[in-house]
Amino acid sequence: MPHRPRQCSIADALSIVGERWSLLTLREVFLGVRRFDRIARNTGASRDILTARLTKLVETGLLEKKQYETHPPRYEYVPTETGQALHSVLLSLMDWGDRYITRTDPPTVWAHDCGATLRPVMVCEHCREPVRPEELTVVRVDQPNPE
Rank of each mutant, 00 (worst) to 15 (best):
K56V: 13
R74P: 00
E125I: 12
L50F: 03
E134L: 15
V78L: 02
E64F: 08
P5S: 05
P73V: 03
P2D: 01
V78I: 03
P133H: 06
A11G: 07
C114D: 15
R53A: 09
L118H: 11
T43D: 00
T117A: 09
S22I: 02
C114A: 15
L14N: 04
T51H: 11
L31H: 01
I101G: 09
R128A: 09
L24K: 00
C124R: 10
V58M: 05
P146M: 09
K66M: 09
E76K: 03
A85R: 02
V17K: 09
S92D: 10
E147T: 11
Y75I: 03
A111D: 15
W21L: 04
D37G: 14
L31G: 11
C124I: 11
A111P: 01
M1Y: 14
R35N: 11
S46F: 03
I16R: 07
T51Q: 08
L62R: 11
R20A: 02
L14Y: 04
E147R: 08
P120W: 07
R27G: 01
I16W: 05
I101T: 09
D37M: 14
D98H: 04
R132I: 04
R38E: 05
L91Q: 08
G32S: 13
L90R: 04
Y77A: 01
R20Y: 07
D113I: 12
T104N: 12
R99K: 04
A85K: 01
L50R: 10
Y75K: 12
V121A: 03
T108C: 14
S88E: 05
V89W: 06
G32A: 02
E69Y: 11
H87R: 04
D37R: 15
D142Y: 09
R53F: 06
P106K: 08
V141G: 12
